[in-house]
């Protein structure tokens, strides 16, 4: 499995990272080197082996259905790069 430029561009878009054309070749090479290296896992016989679900060995803890937070708007908006009153804002999205 070897990545080509188009695939790398597509991954970059899925990850929302702009990759300039002049960096693309290098990136294709780097990613292919890493993927080629991890390819050695195919040597391992994993027939009948379940994927590891967790290393903790305990069950999923649960919270009681209680409201534990008041109005935190000041805290959650404190670091917003372009807040508009009580809102976050982003460039216009067209549905």
């Amino acid at each position: 499995m070897s990545l080509d430029k188009a695939t790398v561009q597509n991954i970059a878009h899925l990850a929302r990272i702009r990759v300039e054309d002049e960096r693309l070749d290098a990136m294709v090479g780097e990613l292919n080197a890493i993927l080629g290296w991890v390819e050695q896992l195919s040597e391992v016989d994993t027939d009948g082996v379940p994927p590891l679900a967790s290393v903790t060995g305990h069950g999923l803890p649960m919270r009681a259905d209680e409201v534990t937070e008041g109005d935190l708007s000041e805290k959650v908006l404190a670091n917003a790069p372009d807040p508009a009153g009580q809102f976050y804002s982003v460039p216009k999205v067209i549905d």
């Binding site: 508009a84 809102f87 976050y88 804002s89 982003v90 216009k92 999205v93 067209i94």
Partner: peptide, 11 residues
């Protein structure tokens, strides 16, 4: 989408 001409607000 309708509070600002160029921006979308998030709640």
């Amino acid at each position: 989408h309708d509070l600002h001409p160029a921006k979308t607000y998030i709640d």
